[in-house]
Computed example of a mutant assay.
Amino acid sequence: MESFLRFFETMPIWMKAGWVFFVLALFWILEGYYSLIVTPYKKWKHAKVNLILLLFVMIINAFFGIVTIGVFVWLNESQFGLLHLFDAPIWVELLLSLLVLDFIAQYGVHYLLHKVTWMWRLHLVHHSDKHVDATTGTRHHPIDFIIRETFALIAVVIMGMPIAFYLFYRILSVLFTYFTHANISLPKSLDKALSYVIVTPNMHKFHHHFELPWTDSNYGNMFSIWDRLFGTFVYEDVRQIKYGVDIADHTNDTSLRTQIGMPFNKTIHSKTKA
């Protein structure tokens, strides 16, 4: 296990970036053969704004990497965090760390992004996509992404986890992000069975429905247990899903300028979602 985790600790940057594009390309291709929702749209034009936002995210991530290294150096020197208060097998420590990261840096912050008005206005960019596919997983306003990364570091500090745990989480998070947003159709029985433990493509699509109450449901990224525990889990008929978000349907979801400026667009009345 230690040698397995050490691999992620020494993983070169080009391999991490390659993983992002490999997983994105894999699910983007699979969508063409196993589509959940078949709608005519220009796939490359749709992907353009999402991929540019991905570029912004990767640039921000590079700067965050410097802060992250500083945090892990401090944790190593101070021995701060819950993991230093007890002895457990490394796999138990890893599982606990993944659960806390998923709860704080995914479910928790995602819930706040929907419930806090100024945060919701940033998160609107993600929900404004009218054709959800694998590239939608990359669609985040830069400030939205900074908030998410800040919460991830908070989880890291609380647990006092080693950097290998965090990097492994990042690799898994990329996989789940593109898997759950991909426009792919799993057998309904398999998707529903998996949704008892992990977030599945069908489950997450209800979150991208254009209006309440489904929009404020299924906040999880990897584990579905948080939505089940806190009463935010939904699993209905996927044929009823319509993508986008009602309060911003009048905006252009393929315009980068429109999307970057969406949080400050006074024609969008966020009170509907507050």
Score class of each variant (00 low, 15 high):
97 S>D: 02
63 F>E: 07
77 E>R: 12
18 G>V: 01
271 K>Y: 14
146 I>E: 01
160 G>L: 12
145 F>N: 10
205 K>W: 15
80 F>E: 02
72 F>I: 01
184 I>C: 14
208 H>E: 06
94 L>S: 09
232 T>W: 11
232 T>D: 07
128 S>E: 09
146 I>N: 03
154 I>Q: 01
249 D>S: 08
83 L>P: 08
262 M>P: 03
240 Q>R: 13
171 I>K: 04
34 Y>W: 15
129 D>K: 15
81 G>Q: 05
32 G>L: 13
105 A>Y: 06
154 I>H: 05
60 I>H: 01
106 Q>G: 02
127 H>S: 08
189 S>L: 06
207 H>Y: 13
118 W>I: 01
257 R>A: 13
57 V>Q: 13
170 R>M: 13
189 S>D: 12
1 M>Q: 06
165 F>V: 05
84 H>V: 00
42 K>E: 13
182 A>M: 09
128 S>R: 12
107 Y>M: 03
93 E>Y: 09
208 H>W: 13
6 R>F: 08
176 F>W: 11
266 K>T: 12
234 V>H: 14
268 I>Q: 04
101 L>R: 00
208 H>I: 11
157 V>Q: 08
71 V>Y: 09
92 V>F: 14
94 L>E: 05
271 K>W: 14
148 R>P: 00
259 Q>N: 11
112 L>F: 12
230 F>S: 05
90 I>W: 09
59 I>F: 15
217 S>Q: 13
54 L>M: 11
192 K>V: 00
120 W>F: 09
249 D>P: 00
265 N>V: 10
55 L>T: 06
169 Y>M: 05
112 L>W: 11
218 N>M: 10
215 T>I: 15
46 H>P: 02
115 K>A: 08
192 K>R: 15
184 I>Q: 10
222 M>A: 05
224 S>E: 09
243 Y>H: 11
250 H>W: 02
238 V>R: 03
79 Q>P: 01
133 D>P: 00
253 D>C: 13
143 I>K: 08
65 G>I: 07
58 M>W: 15
251 T>N: 00
204 H>Q: 02
54 L>S: 09
4 F>P: 07
169 Y>Q: 02
9 E>R: 04
223 F>P: 02
272 T>H: 15
28 W>V: 03
152 A>T: 14
272 T>S: 14
135 T>Q: 06
247 I>P: 03
237 D>E: 11
72 F>K: 10
254 T>N: 15
102 D>R: 05
75 L>P: 10
116 V>W: 15
62 A>W: 12
65 G>L: 08
11 M>G: 06
241 I>P: 02
187 P>V: 01
244 G>A: 07
268 I>E: 05
97 S>H: 04
